Simulated scan of single mutants.
Amino acid sequence: IPRGLDEAVVRRCLAREAQTLIQLSQVQRWVHSVFFGGGTPSLASPLTIAAVLETVSQCARLAADAEVTLEANPTSAGASRLAGFRAAGVNRLSIGIQSVDDAELQLLGRDHTADEALRTLEEAKKLFPGRTSIDLIFGLPGQSVASWARGLERLLQLCDDHVSLYQLTLERGTSLFKLVQQGALPTPEQDMLAEMYEVARRMLQDAGFRQYEVSNFARNGALSTHNLSYWQGSQYIGIGPGAHGRFVPRGSGASLREARIQTLEPDNWMKEVLAWGHGTRKRVAQNPLDVLEEILALGLRTDVGIAHQHWLQFAPSLSLWDAFGASEEVKELEDQGLLLLDHRGLRCSWRGLAVLDSLLPTLLNQLQGGKGLSRHMQTTPSRQNP
């Protein structure tokens, strides 16, 4: 909830937009995942979380075992507040720890200390055992492979069963961005970033974690339902300022999925929701190629990749073999041990997952220029199950 806004009004707007967009979509089956993210949703009260969940359960069918995740900031998630979120219906927590080094946290502009982050982690594990995730950032200015590994080693002794790793992205307008641009702070070279990532992968693997996606690691079966649904190209509804969604509108006569973006500015978003029931700022109809490109780029981020049957749900007249089987470029990636196309489908190898960004242009070019694609686009609507 942005500071300075009346949370009760924001709560009503979130509930109303959820109701409107669920009714506009083709969500007719069980909802299996609700994710409160984007910024610091733990600044909201448990009442707001409960109100949104109540709206979802009234307008659709919220499965009894649905995964309900809340992103939490260590400074806004004390023990009593976490218990309130659990009582409101949250059953999974994602904590933005980022680092256990106070100097690094200060550099990132975070307002929590390493000790606060670790205390929040301990409380979360008691309330959400086996369902507490932590986010970590690598590639900070002045960070070495050794210091990164030390911090990760410490957290591996304390964390639960899910870890997400992200390379630092410098945001324009931040003091960190300016310092790096001015040359006052050196950022790690690309080779060092690759080494940090590879060291972390090995350490997590040795600690019993499965890398089920480029940035996400789980053990004891603690894979995120929300994450998996997203990477498999499922439809989803985004509510709140700046949220993104992908769904096929109901009753429009269209069979194509729409990409939707909600108004970013909270004040304007609230005015639009109060006036029209939702604050959708942008709607873009996705053609079959758009959808297939997303299925390819997202699906290959997972360790299991894209199964033949899954691909055919979106492209009944263009199999993975048709799209990629005859490509010399794809064959070369297979020969290099980076990619596999077999009876299971299309997926990256362990080595390939680490360099997926360099593989995608070849695969996307092959898809765009592949035989049978124009026929598929002319005859086949994109089919997705809500």
Rank of each mutant, 00 (worst) to 15 (best):
Leu367Cys: 15
Arg301His: 07
Leu341Tyr: 08
Gly299Trp: 03
Glu328Ser: 15
Ala297His: 01
His310Arg: 15
Arg347Pro: 04
Val304Phe: 10
His310Lys: 10
Leu318His: 10
Glu334Gly: 00
Glu334Lys: 00
Asp303His: 04
Ser327Gly: 04
Ala315Trp: 10
Leu359Met: 13
Leu296Arg: 02
Thr362Phe: 06
Ala315Lys: 12
Gly299His: 03
Asn365Asp: 13
Glu329Ile: 06
Trp321Asp: 14
Gln336Trp: 10
Pro288Asp: 07
Asp342Thr: 07
His308Ile: 04
His343Leu: 14
Asn287Arg: 09
Gln286Glu: 08
Gly337Asn: 11
Phe314Cys: 11
Pro288Gln: 11
Arg347Lys: 07
Gly299Glu: 04
Ala326Phe: 12
Glu328Tyr: 11
Leu353Pro: 02
Leu338Asp: 05
Ala354Arg: 11
Leu298His: 04
Ala297Trp: 01
Lys331Ile: 07
His310Asn: 07
Leu360His: 09
Asp357Met: 10
His343Phe: 14
Val284Arg: 15
Leu356Glu: 11
Val284Ala: 12
Phe314Val: 14
Leu300Ala: 03
Gln313Tyr: 11
Ile295Glu: 00
Gln313Lys: 15
Asp342Ser: 07
Glu334His: 00
Ile306Asn: 00
Leu298Trp: 06
Leu340Ile: 15
Asn287Ala: 09
Arg283Met: 05
Pro288Lys: 02
Phe314Asp: 01
Ala315Val: 14
His343Met: 14
Asn365Pro: 03
Ser319Thr: 15
Pro316Thr: 11
Gly345Val: 02
Leu296Ala: 03
His310Val: 08
Phe314His: 14
Trp321Glu: 15
Gln313Ile: 12
Gly352Glu: 03
Phe314Thr: 11
Leu341Gly: 11
Leu356His: 10
Leu289Tyr: 00
Asp290Leu: 08
Leu367Trp: 11
Arg283Asp: 05
Leu364Ile: 08
Leu338Met: 12
Glu328Ala: 15
Ser358Phe: 08
Ile295Ser: 01
Ser358Cys: 08
Gly325Ala: 04
Ala326Ile: 08
Thr302Lys: 00
Phe314Ser: 10
Ser349Arg: 05
Leu340Phe: 13
Leu300Trp: 01
Gln336Leu: 15
Arg283Ala: 09
Pro361His: 01
Leu298Lys: 06
Val355Gly: 06
Asp322Ser: 05
Leu338Gly: 04
Gln366Pro: 01
Gly299Tyr: 04
Glu294Met: 14
Asp357Val: 13
Val304Gly: 05
Gly299Ile: 08
Leu298Ile: 11
Leu300Lys: 02
Gly305Asp: 06
Phe324His: 01
Arg301Cys: 06
Val355Pro: 05
Leu320Trp: 00
Glu294Gly: 13
Ser319Ala: 13
Leu363Glu: 08
Arg344Ala: 15
Thr362Ile: 14
Arg347Ser: 09
Val330Ser: 03
Pro361Lys: 02
Leu356Ser: 09
Leu364Glu: 02
Pro316Met: 12
Trp321Gln: 15
Leu353Phe: 05
Glu294Ala: 14
Trp321His: 13
Gly345Ala: 04
Val355Lys: 05
Ser349Trp: 05
Leu363Pro: 06
Asn287Lys: 07
Gly352Ser: 09
His343Gly: 13
